[in-house]
Nucleic acid binder design. Structure first.
Length: 779
DNA sequence: TTCTTCACGCTTTTT
DNA sequence: GCGTGAAGAA
């Protein structure tokens, strides 16, 4: 392969060479000493330890501009890796601002996976693939695992496809090919058949000419390890290497980097050990902790000046994270001037938590703060529901980050399966997915026959289908529809030659009756699914060739952000919030077993707990001006009532930087009825009676009764709450005409009449006037 | 073959 | 409390 610069590369180089020499100095102005050191230390291994909000991106983009401007390397000689496409795009944009369009020459700026895929396509034959291999996603991976398990005659209920996929992923994250998996781990899955299943899975992938995400890296590693000449070409090519979010690298990625850096040693890793929150998918904090050992002569540069948050927010975060062991350690400081403290609030239950936060948001909004300056960050996505309900009720616009992704939706995946099949008829996974979708009378039984036949004749299912049509093994309706399907497939393949992907997509979806299927479908989601199909064809039309489009789709999973994000409250998980910042941040649900998550602690013990703590750290440090933590005394999780204890993280905050606001309660509950919580409570109680307070006690007793087998009644907390309502709720005489109130179901309204025990209310949302005899909040 | 019903189980999520 | 997936009914 040639490493000679292409014409466009040479053009970029010429443009760079023509740039005035004085430009270089401009990059450096305005950097603090640590940032400047990070930029200018170009040779040898560098670890840039960048705490939250310390101007990491600025330092690393400037560093690259500096390398280019001082002509240490040309754009195509720099390898810059990130984890997400978004991060790669942002980095590119930031560099473009510094050096202009010659950033386009940086062809090796991308995610680990996309760069690995590029490398793998050039050397695919070494690992037994063709360079046109398909990249399969998690769903197909699980499907394939299930097939492998069934083929091995294991009980698919006991040993699930998901389970096997998790094991295989774990091995691949650690860079282990089947022959290298430690014997001890073989017994963990499928009655000792774990490694055999892994082998079978890999050989199935080779037959399908496919690779899963983990393979992209592991195959690359194999190539580097077995072909020193190939490795050498890349070592020569990459004169400077830069890795973002190094604390999130797994073992395979670490090995990949180390092999490439072996020759030039010019590797700069940027990260923060305190923000490593992806251990559950194979990230190894130890990679960053051992950097100096792994890369001898490494220089560690700490970025410690924080430009984002107030002193109290920083103090809270630092104090909390100091409870973790094995940290590299750094001392964040800030110039920001503010005496606002972190706020901590205990509330009765989740409903009230949502109400209190919504009230806060509204009052900030009234003071003139934009809704998009505020974010609610939850531990798990099921916690979002109560907020969505409350926001809807209050008529506040919100924006959920994450959620179902475009390329993971049923209809998108079906459509892509059609297109994949057109490109690669050997793709059995896609074949099985769409051969009977829409229903064509070619059901499971016939599909099984094809599968068996394919395996017997060692060919793809499509090919097996062709051969079986000559015989009588498939009869009647199944035969007719299979013939029609295969003929259509042939036709599309011919059409694909000279049609653009957008047109082709439309044609395939029409002729297969897939569009019609959703048009006739009576489910309420059908119209939006049709919308999505249109969007897909639209997206495809932006690419020149079908393979180009399919490759893009396999490695990118973002939804096109639908509409403006302005004026909408952000609602997302803590994981999704990493790398973002907001003036006001709400952190609800700080309760034991929820945050820290029970499962995390159960499964990973002390390590799990420390990762949860880092997650708390990430949450707090997202806040610029105001950080508001809350916890509830009662919470329903999956329909089950719990009376959780306040999170231990609350006790790990610095007392003098936290304002405690005991919420008096929606229904006028007394502060004394709310949880006593550790040293923040004025009337602190001693260890044994630590959580012993009237409200909690009642709730827990009721839970205990239920657990003991009492007949299911209304939730215990509601009984307790009903008492409070009875004793504290406003009487009818407390309401006045013209007052603004809030109803659980109908939202805000104004009292327009009072009669007996009933209120007549004019509701803002619906515009309807209703007579209400149930409780309404005063507002 | 396809439609319906019931049980189950359930963090976090990118590529 | 809800959506998914596998077993029965039409």
């Amino acid at each position: 392969m040639s490493t000679k610069p292409s014409l466009s590369e040479r053009a970029a180089l010429a443009a760079r060479d023509g740039a005035p020499a004085s430009e270089a100095a401009d990059y450096l102005s305005g950097l603090n000493p640590a940032q400047r050191e990070a930029v200018e230390t170009t040779e040898g291994p560098v670890l840039m330890l960048a705490g939250a909000g310390t101007g990491k991106t600025r330092a690393l983009t400037t560093r690259m501009a500096h390398i280019l401007a001082t002509r240490r390397a040309a754009p195509w000689q720099i390898l810059a890796v990130t984890f997400t496409n978004k991060a790669a795009r942002e980095m590119k944009d930031r560099i473009r601002k510094l050096i202009g369009d010659s950033v386009e020459g940086m062809q090796w700026l991308g995610t680990f996976h996309s760069i690995s895929a590029q490398i793998l396509r050039r050397h695919a034959e070494i690992v037994g693939l063709k360079s046109s291999f398909t990249i399969i996603d998690t769903d197909d991976q699980v499907r394939l695992c299930k097939q492998v398990i069934e083929a091995a005659n294991l009980d698919p209920k006991r040993w699930t496809g998901r389970g096997l996929a998790a094991f295989i992923d774990d091995w691949k994250n650690r860079g282990l090919i089947p022959s290298k998996v430690p014997a001890g781990e073989a017994g963990l899955f499928g009655n000792g058949k774990g490694i055999d299943l892994y082998k079978a899975y890999q050989s199935r992938l080779i037959t399908l000419n496919a690779a899963d995400f983990g393979d992209l890296l592991v195959h690359c590693l194999t190539i580097f390890q077995t072909h020193p000449d190939v490795l050498k070409t890349y070592q020569d090519k990459f004169r400077y290497m830069l890795v973002d979010e190094y604390q999130d690298t797994n073992v395979a990625q670490y090995l990949w980097l180390r092999l490439l850096a072996q020759q030039n040693h010019n590797i700069c890793c940027v990260g923060d050990d305190d923000q490593s929150i992806y251990g559950w998918r194979g990230a190894e904090v130890t990679n960053i902790l051992n950097f100096e050992k792994d890369f001898p002569g490494a220089k560690v540069i700490r970025l410690e000046q924080n430009y984002r948050s107030t002193p109290s927010i920083l103090a809270a975060a630092s104090y909390l994270i100091d409870h973790n062991k094995n940290r590299l350690g750094k001392t964040l400081w800030t110039d920001v001037d503010s005496d606002e403290k972190v706020k901590l609030r205990g509330v009765w239950d989740a409903e009230e938590e949502a109400r209190a936060i919504t009230d806060d948001i509204e009052s900030e909004h009234t003071k003139g703060r934009s809704l998009s300056d505020m974010a609610v960050l939850v531990r798990a996505s099921y916690q979002m529901r109560s907020f969505e309900e409350r926001f809807n009720m209050a008529g506040l616009a919100y924006q959920v980050v994450g959620g179902p992704r475009f390329y993971e939706r049923e209809e998108t995946r079906d459509a892509l399966a059609y297109l994949r099949l057109v490109r690669n008829p050997e793709d059995d996974l896609s074949f099985a997915r769409v051969v009977n979708k829409p229903p064509r009378g070619f059901g499971d039984t016939s599909l099984q026959k094809l599968m068996v036949a394919g395996r017997r004749m060692n060919c793809s299912m499509a090919e097996a289908g062709r051969r079986l049509l000559e015989t009588d093994e498939i009869k009647g309706k199944a035969k007719t529809s299979l013939r029609a399907f295969l003929e259509a497939l042939d036709r599309w393949q011919v059409e694909a030659e000279d049609k653009r992907p957008g047109e082709l997509a439309e044609q395939v979806l029409d002729e297969s009756n897939y569009t019609l299927y959703w048009k006739n479908h009576k489910s309420p989601q059908a119209p939006s699914k049709l919308e999505n199909l249109k969007e897909l064809a639209q997206a495809a039309s932006e690419f020149d060739t079908l393979p180009a489009y399919l490759d893009h789709v396999s490695l990118v999973s973002e939804v096109n952000s639908n509409g403006s994000t302005d004026g909408k409250i952000w609602l997302m998980t803590l994981h999704a919030a990493k790398g973002l910042e907001f003036p006001v941040v709400f952190l609800p649900g700080w309760e034991e077993e929820i945050f820290p998550s029970k499962r995390s602690v159960d499964e990973s013990g002390e390590d799990g707990l420390q990762e949860e703590r880092r997650l708390a750290y990430v949450g707090i440090t997202r806040a610029e001006e105001s950080c508001r933590i809350s916890f509830a005394a009662n919470r329903q999780v999956f329909g089950q009532w719990k009376s959780p204890l306040p999170s231990r993280f609350i006790d790990e905050l610095p007392e003098d930087h936290v304002d405690v606001q005991s919420e008096p309660g929606l229904y006028g509950a007394k502060a004394a009825d709310l949880p006593a919580y550790s040293r923040f409570n004025a009337s602190k109680v001693e260890d044994d009676t630590y959580y012993d307070n009237p409200g909690w006690k009642r709730a827990r007793e009721a839970t205990a009764r239920r657990k003991a087998g009492a007949r299911r009644t209304s939730p215990p907390q509601l009984e307790a709450k009903a008492d409070l309502i009875a004793s504290n709720a406003p009487g009818i005489s407390d309401y006045k005409i013209g007052e603004r109130v809030f109803h659980q179901k109908f939202g805000y309204g104004k009292i327009i009449g009072i009669e007996g025990n009933k209120l007549e209310i004019d509701f803002e949302m619906s515009g309807a006037k209703k007579v209400i005899d149930s409780f309404v909040e005063k507002h």
